Structure formats: structure tokens, C-alpha cells
Computed example of a mutant assay.
Amino acid sequence: MADLVYEYSVVVLGAGGVGKSALVVRYAQGQFLSDYNPTIEEQYRCDVQLEGKNCVLDIMDTAGAEQFTALNEVYIKRARGFVLVFSLTQENTLQDIDNIRQQIQMIKGQEANIPIVVVGTKMDLAREREVTRDTIKELASKWGLPFYETSAKNNWHVTDVFHDLLDQMRRRYPDEPLKRRKQKKKTLKGPKHRCIIM
């Protein structure tokens, strides 16, 4: 037997050190990265079941925005959805997000309703917080995008981010070509999604 699978490419963008990799690894592997190692490029494939549909998220974790290259432009052209990451402990990283958001709109051209989720990380570091909830509400209204506050360390709202984006992509691209996948043997009980690092 074969299952129908919806496959979507996702790119994670933001400044260096804001917690992009920690966010992705927490979602993809259920682990917390405590050490910061600058990412060049990491790719994860995650099997997700949402509302009875078999989906695959092909997540690309990229280098910091300050190292924005032509390669990032290629990712943006190809991607269906975007996770824009800033740190709640560094207000200046919001400017990077705004620049990236505008870059996406410029590259995607006239495409409407681009699936995007904006993510503030390090929610657990309350004493170091610089970005207020009022600022987030104001930007969410101005940009018309969903914002999430997360903690990869404590696993707060991480899954919500990717499931919101997946829901947006499914609505935006309802005719996305389906792939057929051979049915594998059932695995033991575990997380609702399974991911592979590439």
C-alpha cells in the first residue's frame, strides 16, 4: 500500500545567535542545544500528521542574516513557508526580521499570502528580555503575521510554530503535488513527528 504525502519546504531565517538551530533541533529531534555553534546549513525532514493528513516538512536551517548570500535567495525562491526568528533578549534582532520579511516579499514578487510565522526565542530568560509584548502586538498587527514566543530549552510553543506554518501552507497551496510513499512497518509509540537530519 502507499500513502499520499504532502511535502512542503520551509526555510528558517534570522540573525546569528538568536536560536534558530535550537528551535529547529527541539522540534525535529526533541533535544535542546545548549552550545552555540554557527550554522552554515542544516536540513531536516520531518514526518508530521496533521488533521489526518500525512505531511513532510523539509526544514532548512540557515546561516545568520548578517551572512545573507545568494544561496539564501535560492532557498527563498524554492521555499513554501518561512520561520523568521528573533531573540526576545535582543531588540535589535527585530530589524533583521523586518529586512528578511521585505526580502522575501521582493523575491516572491506578487505572490499573496506567503506562509510566514515570526518567532521570538529565549522566552525563559525573562530577566534579560528586551522586546515587550506591546511591541510584538504592534508588529503582528502592522505586518499581518502570527507571532510566537518560544523557549527551545523548556519546549514552550515550539510545536505550535511549525504546525501553524504547516496549516498556512496547506491552505495556501491546496493543489501541491502529492507524492506516494510505500507503507513502512508501524513503529513503536513515540513523538507525533519523526525527523531526519541531512
Rank of each mutant, 00 (worst) to 15 (best):
A70R: 15
A70W: 06
L71P: 02
L71Q: 09
E73R: 15
E73Q: 13
V74E: 10
Y75E: 08
Y75P: 08
Y75W: 13
I76F: 01
K77D: 04
K77C: 04
K77I: 03
R78P: 08
R78Q: 14
R78V: 09
A79P: 00
R80S: 13
G81M: 07
G81H: 03
G81Y: 05
G81Q: 06
G81C: 05
F82P: 00
F82E: 02
V83Y: 04
V83D: 08
V83Q: 06
V83H: 07
V83T: 06
L84T: 05
L84N: 05
V85N: 08
F86L: 10
F86A: 10
S87F: 05
S87H: 10
S87T: 11
L88A: 01
L88T: 01
L88F: 00
T89K: 11
T89S: 09
Q90L: 09
E91I: 10
E91L: 11
E91G: 09
E91F: 04
N92K: 15
T93P: 01
T93D: 04
T93K: 06
L94S: 08
L94Y: 07
Q95T: 08
Q95P: 00
Q95Y: 02
D96L: 06
D96T: 05
I97M: 07
I97F: 01
N99E: 13
N99G: 08
I100C: 01
I100S: 00
R101H: 14
R101V: 01
Q102A: 09
Q102W: 03
Q102R: 15
Q102E: 14
Q103L: 11
Q103S: 12
Q103W: 09
I104H: 05
M106H: 13
I107Y: 06
I107D: 04
K108F: 03
K108N: 07
G109A: 13
